[in-house]
Write a protein that binds this DNA or RNA. Sequence first.
RNA 1: ACCGAAGUGGUGGAAUUGGUAGACACGCACGUUUCAGGGGCGUGUGUCGCAAGACAUGAGGGUUCGAGUCCCUCCUUCGGUACCA
Length: 739
Amino acid sequence: MMSDYSKEEIKHIEEKWRKEWVKRGVYRVELSKKPKYYVLDMFPYPSGAGLHVGHPLGYIASDIVARFKRLKGYNVLHPMGFDAFGLPAEQYAIEHGIHPARSTEQNIRNFIRQMDKIGFCYDWTREVRTCDPSYYKWTQWIFLQILDSWYNRRKDKAERITELTKAFETEGNISHPFPNIKYKLASSGKTVFSAREWKSYDEKSRQEILMQYRLAYLAYTDVNWCEALGTVLANDEVVNGVSYRGGYPVIKRQMRQWSLRITEYAERLLKGLEEIDFSDSMKEIQRNWIGKSTGAKVRFPVKSEPSHIMEMVVFTTRPDTIFGVDFMVVAPEHEMVKEIISEAQRDEVEKYLKYVESRSEIDRMAEVKKITGAFTGAYAINPFNQREIPIWISEYVLAGYGTGAIMGVPCGDERDHKFAKHFNLPITNIIGSHYVGGEANPTYDAILENSDFLNGLPMREAIPVVVDKLEELGIGQRQVNYKMRDAGWSRQRYWGEPFPVIYRDDFPYAMDENDLPLELPDSNDFHPSGTGEGPLANLKDWVQISDGERRDTNTMPTHAGAAWYFLRFADPHNKKAFASRDALDYWGQVDVYIGGSEHAVAHLLYSRLWVKILYDLGYLGFEEPFKKLINQGKITGDSRFVYRVRGTKKFVSAGLKDKYKTDPLHVDIKFVNGLELNTEAFTQWRPDFADAEFILEDGKYICGAAIEKMSKAYYNVVNPDDIIDAYGADTLRMYEMFL
RNA sequence: ACCGAAGUGGUGGAAUUGGUAGACACGCACGUUUCAGGGGCGUGUGUCGCAAGACAUGAGGGUUCGAGUCCCUCCUUCGGUACCA
């Protein structure tokens, strides 16, 4: 069974054939008359740590599929590339002064070396890197196409902005209302305008209006701002409301940023799931993310001390419970809050707002048991029975979801119930014996009581009755709501694609396509500007083009380059287009896509979005990028522990550890043979172990063991290089597949 | 907290519809082999017990003649929760 070849011979043979493959170009593919097959791995982020044996798990599987299909006579596209923009390279640059371009280049070289050793049959002539100007030229180009588009709800597809202006010139926006229902015209305070009005607007007003429709648009959105560090932080860098580095307070701050109007595609992204072969759990995750719910929008008049004439709008999936509304809750950030506070409540509300500012969204959702809130002093009027309902603010209502306001029905909703109990608000029971006071009952089956014209109706049947009534009285309507929000597309970072726009009079205009790529300017200062803008703001000469012209100082997120790279592989060297239509038509969709389930929402949704937009605009013949998705699973590591006697430098062998009070410490598996620790190597590992003493059993130090996820932090990583050196590439491949 | 997935020997995992739990393999132990070795062959290997046997599929309940599989409650781990990739 086992070959009689030595390590050196194995190495020699493998190297010889790898060179031969490259020399003969055996894995190069071209367009042909043969049927095609496209096998793709999710391209890696080239981290400084290199590949560990977990990475190749999926790559080996796809390699086997590619080889199989090739032998079956298919023309197989099996490329590899690098998702090379990203935060870690930038942080590395700040800490070590090494330009991200250089560290990224080094890391990629190491990745390729490691992958080559494993003997993958990639067509390296097709390699793409998202940080390469010849690649991101087309990322920027696609962004400009998105910027130049709007979503025509009547045709249910994206169209060019010129189509919209044509409509405005003939009939105003009557057929195409503002996508954002909260938006009102600055000039009139209205939401509609006529053709005549449109023609009377100046350039800036027109652009302002068009911005409300564009699929890529500028708007004020929240960021995590850390005053002490003078920078915007990723959610990952914020832990319990303070910065991960340094522990400084972090607050939310509004910044003018790019967003993609992915919400316009919510329904199509949902429907598209039916025709693609993803696992049920994957589809479930995407469905939940999109979060479609049907219900009604209800308008309540508001009675407040400042006595503005106003109303508030809530979205509810349970309009049948409208007579059980005992309070209203508005998100603390909601713009109406400041207009309705009564004098008596002002101090309390402001104190509360200060508290909320310090809380991350995740904290707000996570700590549901902790009930907080403040009464505004204002009241909403139930439109059916004129009952006065107190309006509260509370962090459990999020501004971004629905209308940012809810109606509180304590007998039917557990969170509302806890809120009412906590603040001693009266609870109206509309479901009779289904509610006994201990906890809420979210049933649909109860017969309604205390509910005026709905009395005696089962709740399920009451829903259409009450919605019809709302529509009849003009105080509400049926409404489909999606939990998904538009995608924030600006990052205050250096290492990403610059936005190909120029600001004139503080308004962005698309750059000329012929001037792309807008290259990332060279820099040796990667520190944030301190003003909330990214490091690019430090490069004054680059930012300020002329007196009236400025560049955007943000860059795109890494999702941008990753949202279309599978298209570039079809025609990676094309200088005239992101890929030729011939190549796109031939290679088409990815037949099998292999990668981790952690990308279920971000990468996979953005890729689906970009493909749908390009399809709508006529650049593609298909609407879904990936026909079939396979999640490859994970490799666990076999960790080893030593046991330090608490408060000493003595380490006790595993068999004797129960005789002492000990703390387990991970020890690098390099120093352990089976379970036996190489104590000499261990003492040299770290300075603080240099004078370690060992309590041995049978003359040996035996380690503890556990199976954990493979991670550098647990010192249980296995580098594929070592396995290949010891056993050869085929052994690694077979072994991983056997696992 | 919410959404998703998963918990079966030392390990990877079998057990297609509710019908012999642990197939197959890795590892380990012992033996064996003109046996360099990480090779070959054999035996053993869930736990307790000398044995008969009893107990075992994250925990606890339930349905059933019969539950890893169905139902309820709970626990743990992993992934995601919108600026990590």
